[in-house]
Computed example of a mutant assay.
Amino acid sequence: MEKDMTLPNPPRSRARAGAIPLKSLRVSRWKERLLAYGFLAPSLIVFGIFLFYPLGKSVYLSLFLTDPQGRIAEFVGIDNFKAVLSSDQFYNSLWVTVKYILFTVPTGAAAALLLAALSHQKLRGMKIFRFIFSLPMAVSVGTGSVIWMILYHPTLSILNYGLSFLGIPAIQWLTDPKWALPSIAMMTVWLNLGFNYIVLLSGLQGVPDDLYESAKIDGSGSVRTFFRISMPLISPSLFFVGVVSIISAFQSFAQINILTKGGPMNSTDVLVYNIYQDAFINYRFGSGSAQALILFVLITALTILQFKFGEKKVHYQ
């Protein structure tokens, strides 16, 4: 009987012993979470200072009129957005931005893809060409703008000197409203060529050689192999280049500020430069913040549409 009465005691001791590891497991999980947040803290602080705070400040300023010192003068609600959306200058800047995107994004992707396809060949000395094609990535926007400013010089232009041999009259690259935006687009294509080239070349190098050998055995030519095998397999790289290039084109500012300052006749007055003029030249911080938020919504919506419709044609391995 005594043995029977003492039987329930061991399970209790086991339950108490099992409670200690469970508690220690919870403590260790909290320690891991705190450690993870500790590693993320520097990045979150940087994002908070340079991204989230300016975004919140822009939302706040867009609801007010401000004085030249940026101090709040009067609450106007959404009147700044109404004024922007009813302004002809805003729609002109939007149209200029759309043309700028059409000039730069397809041309830049096509040029980088062509150079990547040519330099993907296994020939002697090809690494030198790969290095040369990647060089624009090491050039800053300011330095590149100064270089192209010399190339576009009205009287000392090297480009006009070359055109003179072909019997073509000199072109006023940056002072003619018809040529100003294409000239800046040409400079931007060259400036982004290095990055796009490296991304697309990496995609081509990731295609297995067995597929090329099988296509060659089947009698497929180089052009057909490229469009039927290479293009579908590097579609993720092409999609990435397209998304990044469009976002970068929407945010272009430095080359326009250095080369044309939005002129001539507002032919290069893209949205970002129009925001700069409103906020930091005319001191209308409320209107500039409203335009910045509209630009943010446009970029976000266009990116979502690209992922919703464009990603369907991307073939992931």
Rank of each mutant, 00 (worst) to 15 (best):
L204F: 06
L204R: 09
L204A: 05
L204Q: 02
L204Y: 05
L204C: 08
Q205R: 07
Q205D: 03
Q205H: 03
Q205S: 03
G206A: 04
G206S: 08
G206Y: 02
G206M: 01
G206T: 02
G206Q: 03
V207A: 06
V207W: 00
V207T: 08
P208Q: 02
P208I: 04
P208L: 01
P208S: 04
D209C: 04
D210Q: 14
D210E: 14
L211Y: 11
L211M: 14
Y212E: 07
Y212F: 12
Y212L: 06
Y212H: 08
E213K: 09
E213T: 05
E213F: 06
E213G: 06
E213C: 08
E213W: 04
E213H: 13
E213R: 10
S214F: 08
S214Y: 08
S214G: 14
A215T: 11
A215S: 13
K216C: 09
K216F: 07
K216G: 10
K216Y: 06
I217V: 13
I217F: 12
I217S: 09
I217R: 13
D218R: 12
D218E: 12
D218P: 06
D218H: 10
D218Q: 12
D218T: 15
D218K: 09
D218S: 05
G219E: 09
G219S: 08
G219A: 06
S220F: 14
S220H: 13
S220Q: 14
G221H: 11
G221A: 14
G221L: 12
G221I: 13
S222D: 15
V223P: 13
V223E: 15
V223I: 15
R224N: 10
R224V: 14
R224F: 11
R224T: 11
R224Y: 15
T225D: 11
T225N: 13
F226Y: 15
F226S: 13
F227I: 06
R228A: 14
R228T: 10
R228I: 15
R228D: 12
I229P: 07
I229N: 09
I229E: 11
S230H: 08
S230V: 05
S230I: 01
S230K: 10
M231V: 13
P232V: 02
P232N: 04
L233H: 06
L233A: 15
L233I: 10
L233F: 05
I234N: 07
I234G: 11
I234F: 04
S235R: 00
S235V: 10
S235E: 04
S235N: 07
S235D: 03
S235M: 04
S235A: 04
P236A: 03
P236H: 01
P236K: 00
P236E: 01
P236L: 01
S237G: 09
S237W: 01
S237A: 12
S237Q: 07
S237P: 04
L238A: 04
L238F: 01
F239Q: 00
F239S: 08
F239C: 03
F239Y: 03
F239H: 02
F240E: 08
V241P: 06
V241A: 06
V241Y: 01
V241N: 10
G242R: 00
G242V: 01
G242C: 02
G242M: 04
G242A: 05
V243A: 02
V243R: 03
V243E: 00
V243F: 01
V243L: 00
V243N: 05
V244S: 07
S245T: 07
S245N: 02
I246W: 01
I246K: 00
I246N: 00
I246C: 03
I246M: 02
I246Q: 01
